[in-house]
Amino acid sequence: MIRERYLNGLVLVLLLAVPLWALINDQPFTITLATRAAIFALAAVGLNIALGLGGLVSLGHAAFFGIGGYAMGILAYHAQTYTPVMELPFVIEGTKSMPIIWLVAMVTSGTAALLIGLLSLRTTGVYFIMITLAFGQMFYFFSISWIAYGGEDGLSIYIRNDFPGLNTLVPINFFAICFTLLCLVLFINGLVARSPFGLALNAARQAPQRVQTVGLDPQRLKLVAFVLSGVITGLAGALFADLNRFVSPTMFSWQTSGEIMIFVILGGTARLCGPVVGAVVFVMLEHALGGLSEYWHIYLGALLLLVVLFARGGLVGLISGRAVAHD
């Protein structure tokens, strides 16, 4: 058994070491893979706040991932075509600045999470899963029919967006941005889990009745967690679109929601670095097995089955044992 905090450190060091190794050996594709893993991890860290801490099994997190993606796509598309996003009642110009795009992605996905959460949180259990799935699908079909932004074909962005002082087209630079954001969000996640809010949310998942009798509203706690979760997944969506320089309705699809959930469950629900481990393993399998067969998901399915059956705490739980309440 390795203590979880050491394991977390090890995972992050490895995720940093691989692209550095690739940089020295001039293998830019490996850097791109690591970047992909870091972005998926970020999306899953977002879901982990809702799922792990709040117990909210959302099968609609692709909505936030996609909103983040389209926030980037739309702003960058207008910047590259020199057209305003809208003119009435006031003019909004497109932009190629990453920080502004991130902010827009987080605000829009947070707003969507607030609205979706307000409705979805009236339900629990399987109904909650279905209603979040339904919202995700609504966004999916909306994006398909949104011809102005490519409809089914999606939107291509020719040049990666700018970050002050960095050439973002250099793979290692873009990896550095994504990795830094991941670490920052993990740090914040760690703080939130130990805060009064985290404590109350954790209890709201396990014993909502108890939370009420101490005068706290479990629904409101869960709603805030859902919004926080949506904001982070939205940020990941913007980065993902920037990595590919392309957005399409696929980002909104329920398979995307499922994959984000798989990262969390594979790595370990409610474990700080569970989503990171899950995303890294996923990208590794995708890369290693994807070359062998188009149907590599069969192996992923088998692995997921094993983890769910024999390692309830996910891969992190398998290595570090059950969670220590406050380390």
Binding site: I188, L191, P196, G198, A200, A203, L216
Partner: peptide
């Protein structure tokens, strides 16, 4: 949790309880 409820301040996110 009881103490947080009694004080009525669950809206602190970054401060260790």
């Amino acid at each position: 949790l009881g103490a947080v409820g009694a004080v009525g301040s669950p809206w602190r996110f970054l401060f260790p309880v």
